[in-house]
């Protein structure tokens, strides 16, 4: 599954901010993940409008996570930036009205369903646990 750049920026920003109690600047987040600071700033503004992050201006200003980490899911974040796992999504394409087209749609809809179920079951808090487990696994010799 290939995510759009803005979606990846948003997920990284939310995870980074949720993992920290205080504020972080867009520059700090951009540097860690090798992101474009300008693009990240736009994404953060969008997340701010959605109430997921809060910004403060001035010296020491930055962003902080404003959501509920145990409730906010990957799907909530991702679907702001792109349609995710919407069965039957997209424009009508040649062949859609044939039996073969409908059969193909059944299979692709199954995949979309699973994608949606997966992303809607993983909260920010769960993602941070997965990050910690991944870090531990990587730290083990041969991990």
């Amino acid at each position: 599954m290939k995510l759009q750049i803005a979606t990846r920026h948003a997920v990284f920003a939310i995870l980074e901010l949720a993992a920290h109690d205080g504020q972080m600047s867009a520059g700090e987040i951009a540097e860690k993940y090798g992101l474009s600071p300008n693009h990240l700033a736009k994404v953060l503004r969008t997340l701010g409008r959605e109430g997921m992050v809060e910004a403060s201006r001035g010296v020491g200003g930055g962003y902080r996570f404003a959501g509920n980490a145990k409730r906010l899911t990957l799907l909530d974040i991702m679907q702001i930036f792109e349609p995710i796992g919407v069965p039957g999504a997209g424009n009508s394409e040649p062949g859609d009205d044939t039996d073969e087209g409908r059969a193909l749609r059944r299979v692709t809809d199954e995949i979309e369903d699973i994608t949606r179920a997966t992303l809607s079951s993983i909260t920010v808090d769960t993602m941070l646990k997965i990050v910690r487990r991944t870090r531990k696994g990587a730290a083990r010799p041969g991990g």
Partner: peptide, 18 residues
């Protein structure tokens, strides 16, 4: 069940993956 989001979130939070 695929639509049992609460239960799936619970097991995910305990560390279960596909």
């Amino acid at each position: 069940a695929r639509d049992a989001q609460l239960v799936m979130s619970f097991f995910r939070s305990q560390g279960l993956m596909a």
